[in-house]
Amino acid sequence: MHALALAVGANLPVILWGAPGTGKTSAVLALGRHLGLPVEAVVGSVREPSDFAGLPVVREGATWFAPPRWAERLAAAGEGILFLDELTTAPPAVQAAMLRVVLERVVGDLELPPEVRIVAAANPPALAADGWELSAPLANRLVHLDWEVSAATVADGFTGGFAVPEVSSADPPSPTSLAASRALVGAFLRVRPALVLAVPDEPARGWPSPRTWELAATALACTAHDERARAELVVGAVGEAAGFELLSWVRDLDLPDPESLLYDPAAPLPDRVDRLHAVLGSVVAHVTADGGGEAWQRAWALVARVSRATPDVAAGAARSLAARRPEGTPLPSAMLEVAPILRAAGLMP
Rank of each mutant, 00 (worst) to 15 (best):
V154A: 06
L253Y: 10
T89D: 15
R141P: 00
T88K: 03
F83P: 00
D271I: 07
T212Q: 04
L112P: 00
L37F: 01
L342E: 07
E86F: 05
W213V: 03
A139S: 11
T89N: 11
L31R: 00
A278I: 11
A90R: 07
G328R: 04
L6Y: 09
P200A: 11
V154C: 03
A323H: 05
V287P: 08
A151G: 05
V235F: 09
E166A: 07
V149F: 15
L4Q: 01
A323D: 05
V338S: 15
M1Q: 06
A241P: 06
E240A: 13
T212F: 04
L276E: 08
V8W: 04
C222I: 15
V94T: 12
D109C: 04
H2N: 13
L127W: 05
R192G: 08
E294F: 13
M348Y: 06
E79L: 01
A136I: 02
P349N: 08
D51V: 05
E214P: 10
V199F: 07
G291L: 13
S282C: 14
E294N: 13
V287C: 14
P349S: 15
A179V: 03
E133I: 11
G80P: 00
V107E: 01
V313H: 05
A180F: 05
H34Q: 02
E245C: 06
A334N: 14
L178S: 00
D109A: 03
V94I: 14
L82M: 05
A71V: 12
G80K: 00
R59S: 09
V250N: 12
W147D: 02
T310P: 07
V39T: 01
G23A: 03
V149S: 10
A3L: 04
